Simulated assay, not measured.
Amino acid sequence: MKQVEAELRVDFVEGPVAHRLRFGGGRGQDLAKAIGLRAGKTPTVIDATAGLGRDSFLLASLGAQVTLIERSEKMHALLMQGMERAEKEGGQFREIIGRMTLLKGDAKDLIPKLSGDAILIDPMHPARKKSALVKRELRQVRDIVGTDDDAADLVRVAIQHARKRVVLKWPAKADPIEGVQACTHQIRGKTTRYDVFMVG
């Protein structure tokens, strides 16, 4: 019998997000360091490619005000539902969602009108050279949002408009995006690296 694929949903209350909230290691995490969250410093963040909203939620849980941008109609609707559910949960979840603002549109058009210390860009990553099946959830996201062929343009717009830094989240072993200036420094994890472009 063919297995029916579970419907994709954005869940901030249970699963990996809740686990990371409880046991994630706070501001010592690579993403937090890349964004510039450290003792006494809490930058405002624009998440230009919101997707499932997990990075935004993590940053908001560490005290940052985060503006999420999602251009896919369907993904935006899923994010909105996820945020509403988390808000209804109350307590800590409501407080975190209170620091998140969701916008619909193309980040390249919206970023010039917004103001953020740090801009996070996590484009759909290039197809892996190894043919291991991409995680089901990621595959579902890719089916919805497609490939981000304009990632280089987005990074360039972000570099022009961020107040302090732009952070590109990218597979650890992938080549840099063509047409983008060299980054200032990198924070490398096992599977992911953060290319940090200091500006201003």
Rank of each mutant, 00 (worst) to 15 (best):
W170E: 12
F12E: 11
I46K: 00
A132L: 14
K169G: 02
Q3K: 15
A86T: 07
V45I: 08
R54C: 08
D143Q: 15
Q92I: 03
K164Q: 14
L154Y: 02
V17N: 08
G189T: 07
L120F: 00
G25M: 09
R188S: 13
G82I: 15
F197D: 04
A158S: 15
G26Q: 05
A162K: 01
E84R: 13
D117L: 02
A64C: 13
G51I: 10
F12V: 08
E7H: 09
G15Q: 09
T44K: 06
M83P: 14
E14A: 10
L138H: 05
G90M: 05
G105W: 07
G36P: 03
T147K: 12
L79K: 13
L37S: 01
D109F: 03
K169H: 06
L21E: 04
K169S: 11
I119A: 06
E5M: 14
A34M: 07
L154H: 08
F57K: 11
M83N: 12
H19N: 07
R136V: 07
V45K: 01
M80I: 11
I96P: 08
S115L: 00
K33E: 11
R38Y: 09
A18S: 09
K173R: 14
K190V: 03
E137R: 04
M1K: 12
D149K: 06
L58R: 01
A127V: 15
K164V: 03
M83I: 14
D106N: 07
T42V: 14
E178C: 02
G179E: 01
G200F: 04
A132K: 13
A64K: 03
A151F: 00
Q186W: 04
H185A: 00
K41V: 06
Q92G: 02
K130Q: 12
V157N: 03
I69K: 07
T192F: 12
Q3T: 11
G146S: 08
I187K: 15
M1S: 12
S131C: 01
T42R: 15
G28H: 15
V196Q: 01
E5N: 09
R128L: 15
E70M: 11
R163T: 02
E14I: 05
P16V: 10
M75L: 14
D143E: 13
V196A: 11
S115R: 00
G146C: 12
Q181E: 08
G40T: 01
V145W: 10
I69R: 05
K41A: 08
A174T: 11
L114Q: 04
I96V: 15
